[in-house]
Nucleic acid binder design. Structure first.
Lengths: 156, 156
DNA sequence: GATAATGTACTCGGATATGTTGTGTCCGAGTTGTTCTGG
DNA sequence: CCAGAACAACTCGGACACAACATATCCGAGTACATTATC
């Protein structure tokens, strides 16, 4: 069980975009150089956030990516599930109904208890991430961070 | 983020072994046929549970795998982390200290807030799975299930 | 008849191929800001 | 000096190779039981 490496990039990128003034965009190339990551691959992943409705993209000069919603309305879960999908990492294939020890249908009326418990754990994970918004993240940064990010991501 | 398919096999296998009488073992071939899964691959994964101290293995005739501890002392987390590892699926590579926007060392005294929040979510997931033991799983099975499993996994 | 040695069948354990998914890269379509020309 | 059109540069968006891990498989080392020969 491993999240893509790009998850870290996108979380930081979203946090950086949240620090920009409303209406201002930053391009994929800017963000890539800002973090020292491959520009083309970052751009590919940013598209996933656009498809998920977390970011909005604008083409042409002065274009780029910006938040599609206020930072208070974007949770870490929104970002993570945009890049990795919302599926439960545990996939129940009903092996209780297969092989020599297959259970009779009467015993399979309710969901497999193991699948239920694994789903509950996944829900706990999702709830933990859903409780943190980008605004919460920004609130923990030092005072100097936001002006600094704005200046670094503003093109001359 | 996806758990190996074999995770389901091992959870069910551990639950089945927990239903056997103390001291009785079931071989990898038996368990594989019981669930209709590839025997060699299941055996390979069962070894991971042995290395983790969850199962104990015995070679030779009448040998096989059995629980290394009472079912009350084995949690779902023990099984899942034995096969998949205990590492956090989110790996912080400190990109905040890299690239054009690298933060000064003074701002990196404490752990990156994003890594902290991702770790908290992982802890919530682990706590949820650690709270469920194999004995809890067995308690939800119908009365007929345990004698049935014992009879199917007992060799003639 | 009891015992010890032998043989056999069964078990796990690790080393070896293959398929799928994430990783990384490239080029094309579209849009905006700029520049140049004409009135 | 102003307006319009053409141009050019920059942006995203999707299509194309490469690599790492999970998947699947095989054969060898070791052990317990059953058998057999001996005392």
């Amino acid at each position: 069980m491993k999240l893509p490496t790009s998850t870290e990039w996108l979380l930081h990128a979203a946090a950086s975009l949240a620090q920009l003034e409303p209406g201002v965009s930053a391009s994929a190339a800017q963000l890539a150089e800002h973090y020292g990551v491959p520009a083309a691959y970052l751009a590919k992943q940013l598209q996933a956030l656009v498809r998920a409705g977390v970011l909005a993209a604008t083409t042409g000069p002065r274009g780029g990516f910006r938040l599609a919603r206020p930072a208070t309305a974007i949770s870490l879960l929104d970002v993570v599930e945009a890049v990795d999908g919302a599926a439960n990492p545990y996939e129940c294939r009903e092996i209780r109904q297969q092989g020599r020890g297959a259970l009779p249908a009467a015993d399979c009326r309710s969901t497999c208890i193991l699948a239920v418990k694994m789903a509950e754990a996944h829900d706990a994970w999702r709830a933990s991430l859903a409780a943190v918004s980008l605004a919460d993240v920004l609130a923990t940064l030092p005072e100097t961070a936001i002006p600094r990010t704005r200046s670094l991501l503003t093109r001359g």
